[in-house]
Structures are given as C-alpha cells and as structure tokens.
Design a protein around this nucleic acid. Sequence first.
DNA 1: GCAAGGTC
Length: 680
Amino acid sequence: MPNSRVNRVLCVAEKPSIAKAVANHLAGGQVNTRNIRGNPYVKNYEFQYNFQTWGACTVTMTSVLGHLLSHDFDARYKGWKSCDPSQLFEASIEDFVEESKQPLADNIQAQARNCQILYIWTDCDREGENIGTEIRSVAVKGNPSLSQPGKTVRARFSNIERAHIVNAARNPIALDEAQSNAVQSRIELDLRIGASFTRNLTLSVQPMLRQHFGNDDQGVISYGSCQFPTLGFVVERYLRVRNFVPETFWTIKVMHEKDRIKVNFRWARNHLFDRMVVVILFERCLTAKTARVTKVQTKPTSKWKPLPLTTVELQKCGSRFLRMDSARVMQVAEQLYQKGWISYPRTETDQFDRDMDLRALVQKQTQGGDWAQFAQGLLNGGFSQPRSGHNNDKAHPPIHPVNFVNPTQLTQDESRVHEFVVRRFLACCSEDARGSKTEISILYGGETFSTTGLTVLERNYLDVYKYDRWTSSQELPRFQEGEVFEPTEALMDEGKTSPPGYLTEPELIALMDANGIGTDATMAEHISKIKERQYVETRARVRGARQDDDDEAASDGEAAAAPEAGRGRGRGRARARARGGRGSAEGRGATNGMQEFIPTTLGVALVEGYENMGFEISLTKPFLRKEMELKMKAICEGRKSKAEVVHETIEQYRDVYIRTQQRLDTLRAAVRKYCFGENA
DNA sequence: GCAAGGTC
C-alpha cells in the first residue's frame, strides 16, 4: 500500500483558544507558533507528537473561527424583487467561504497538502460536528486523499485538562455525519423559511406603514424561527397584563402578642373569593374565642449553594444582580475570556468533571480581591465538591475563573461580571448554608393558622455569594403544643389580586431556554434583534415589589416557563429541568429597577395578525422550533434522512405561506387596528 | 434590506 506511512498530521480546532491549549498539552514545551496570512487571531502551532495510532509525527495544530462555510441563494435570487419570495423554498443555494474566512480556508488547504491525517478538534456538539465536515471539505481541496475512510478523524473531549486531552489524542474517532447532516438541514430550513417569509412580510406590510406615516422609517419586517417565538412571549405576557381583571378576595388575619413579640399567623386557606364563606369561618373563630397550639416543630433546614454557572444562568443573573442586559453581559464575558481571566463563556454545562482540580482554581483566588480570605478558608477545610446539575454539553465546563486578576486592571463592567463569576465559583465550592426552622400551627374556631421562624446557624457560601439573601426572621416566642390562648387580634381583611408584571429579561431568557428557542450563544442576539426590528421596547420597571401570589413567573426556570409556554404539552428541554427547582435569590423586591419588555404596536399587530389567520400551527409560539429540534434529533439517531426532514418541513411552511397570502387582509387589518388605531 | 449558528 503506497503512502500508508503517517508522519504529518494536521489538527484543526473550532477556535484559537482550543488549538493553543491542545498544542501546549501535547507538545510538552516544544512548540513553534506561526502567524497565518490575513488573520490576526488564528495561529499555527507546530510540534512533534508520538501518536498511539500513527507513531512519531510532525503536527500542525490550527483552528477556524466557528463555521467556515456560508450559505446563500444563487445570485439570480439575491434581489428582493427578483422572484416571488415563495420560490426561495426551492431556489438553489451556494455553499462558499466568505471573504473574511478565506485566509483560514487557504491556510487549511495549504497545510493539508503535506499531511496524511486530518485530525478534527472541534467542540463535541452538533455544530462542532458540522464544522468538522466543513473543515474536511476545504482540506480535501488541498489533499484529496483526506476524503478516504480513516484519513479524517476527530478527537472526543469535553474539557481541556491535560490528561483528558492526551487521552483524546490517543483515541481518535470518526466524525458523526448524522449530526452534521442535522445541522445542514437546520441551516437550509432557516435560510429558506426566514428569507421567504421576511421578504413577503416586508414587501406586503412595509409600504402600508410608510404610506400611512408619510416617511421611510419602517425598516425590514423579518420572520425567523427564533425571533418570532421570542416576540410571542413578550406579546403574550403583555396581553395577560392588559386583559387582567382584578378579583376581590377575603382573608382572616390573626395576631398574638407574647413575651412582647407580635406574631402574625397566616391562614392555611390563604384567601377565598367568596365573602360570605369567609364571614362564616371568621365568626366561628370569634365564637371559639381561644386558639390551641397544635404543632411546634423545630427542624434543621438549609439553603443550597448555587449550581455551577451556565451561560443562561449568567445572563439571568446579569439582569438581576448587575443590571446589565444579556447582550452586554455576554460582550463583557467574552472580553474576560479573551484576556484569559475566565473560562469559555458559552456553555450549557452545570457540572464540573470529577477529575478537575478545583482546589487549584480556588488557590488562585487567594491572591487578592475581597474574596481572598474566603478562598483561603475553603483551602483550610471549608472546601466542598460542587453540586451537579443535569446538563452537560460535552464541549465546555461551567463558567469559572481560570486565573487571578487584580480587579484594578479591569473596566468597571468587566470587574462586576468577573466578581460575579468568581463569587459564584467559590460559592459552588462551599458548604450549603444551614439553619433551623420553627413552625407553629394553631387551631382557631376550626381553622388552621401558622407561622414560621428561621434562625441562620452557618452562613457558609452566603458569605461569598452576596447575591443571595437568607436572614433570620424575628425570633418567635416560646409556644407549647396544646397551649391555649386568646389571640390579641383577629380580623377579616379584603384584598385584590393584582396583574402580573410585564416580562423581564431573566424571565424571557428562562422561557426561551425552556422552549429551546436559540442557544446559549444566540439567545441574547434574538432579544436584541426584536428590539432592533422595533417589535418590542424595554423600559425600567417602575412599580414596587410584586405581592400577589398567582404570579409564579417572578421566580425562576420551570415555574416561569409553565404557565405561558407549557400549555400541558411537555415542559421543554432536559436542560431546563435541572434549574430553578428552588427559586434562589430572585426575591420579589429584586425585580425593582429591572428592564421590562413591552411590545410595540407593530409587535402586537404581527402576533395578532398571524394568530387571527387561524392556522393550527402558530408561527408565534415555540412549538415549530421544538418540532425542528425533534427532527434534528431524528436525523442524529438515523430515524430520518436530511432530505426527508427538509422536504417535509418545507412543504409544511409552503402551506402556511400560501394561506398567509390568501389571508393577507387579516394581517393588514391587524396592522391598521394596532398601528393606525383604526377599527377592524 | 432576509435566518440562525458558530466565533473574534
């Protein structure tokens, strides 16, 4: 067999940071770093390595910058009026290297010429698999033999610890073509559907608005499988607030003063909407005169430390604790990552690998900062292995500090995000907070009332994670089980349910996450996209802390997702389930001053217009995107082919498109109603 | 002038 001997290997990573880290681990000190022509970020690392599979080799390790290929329609379809937008469902698509990526492609093509093996080191996720095939397609142009079986391989790795990387280098596997195909179908569908609907929407609605307002202010009106459901969430909440009808309820309040401490007891029924019933129950209390203590129970309780930090969680906390919108938080996190202070900021993983040396990372934080002493305390015996969430993207560890940096070297925003990442990490490595909870119940005229008291005994992680609040309540007086007393005060009170608040950014992100809208890297972009398109606006929340109790959306994760998006149709992706079980720091008062999302008249008109067309599948709800996710999974598991998925999905949308055309007046009517204030 | 997904 000619040329079967391998002495040169070309490795290509998804990003420069991975190329550098892997090269350093494998080379053991002897690395030549070379710039490439035409791009300042990508470098070639050259070194010797003795592969288990091929023996001693000369290695070039380089990278791309995400996807290498772009996809767009043939030139003849580029003009917006060159064809009917529906032709984009079948128009031919070109795959090409965009100008800015050409130096990367040239580099790979040139390096591939002398190599016998192409070793792919992209992230081990669907997109990474697809980027791997893109790299191969370019490398093959320089060296056709790399398309032969076994000549292109990939590394399986999920972090960049030395031992893990060395192990990955010893055990190459094949690229997963199915996963790559799933991504290809996603790319094709998003392009065809997005472009056809966007052109159609813009060409039919934009002129109306420009004419009515007598200016050219109205820009593109776009449709996308992520931006529309995102808009849908905002509009749905807006309408819930607007259509809210307050209801009057009644409750019974009991207060007893003992040992000069006033204790308020909460009615077990909370409140009822039938006044007469409450009157009767209240009278029974008054008739009984005395109350009897039925339960006095003190038991240990704890407040769990937070989970390792994911991107979604970072964005939510950014809005909540740092008052930065998600796009800004990601921008700052990216800077911190590039300067080498924190790990990769786009991750879904909320579990640390067992073999990661977390103590070494804690050690670095003992050098300074307000948290230095706390970090030292962890090393002196306070360390506790972080909790594990249920999500692992198999590509990146949770976000954590990788080096110590003097905060004075950072900009103000950088320093705040960095501080959050460090404190979060140290909190993860601490013990849960411990306390003691006392619950006292009384029976009063047949009704049960109760009160609780909390004593915080050990603050532990709370000392470093200043974003969580957990404080001892006022001390309760001593009560004995069976004790009988006459309450100091008992009264019937009236109240009104109040509307939920408009959607906040953490809530919106939680909804997107739970419904699979966008990825950790793109959610913030979709949110800023619907602002840019003038579908929504944000403003600072003016009202005070929320107080009604039918608004569970003020808390986190699943709870927020269930009422709007759930509709009894399953509860979102696995990664959404792990979080938010026990609302952490999102106390109601914490929402003050946060940005809230209000749809514009155009935003409402679009959602209403499409809703009123009466399709059984809604473009403004997350189900279509979820369906796409399931179809991609089917391709990955070999249950469907790429062609099948693309075909059936296109037909589905073609149908919607045709009916949108037939019922265009419905959409126009909604625009006239909301944007022009005309009656339908 | 369109999408969503990578990454700088």
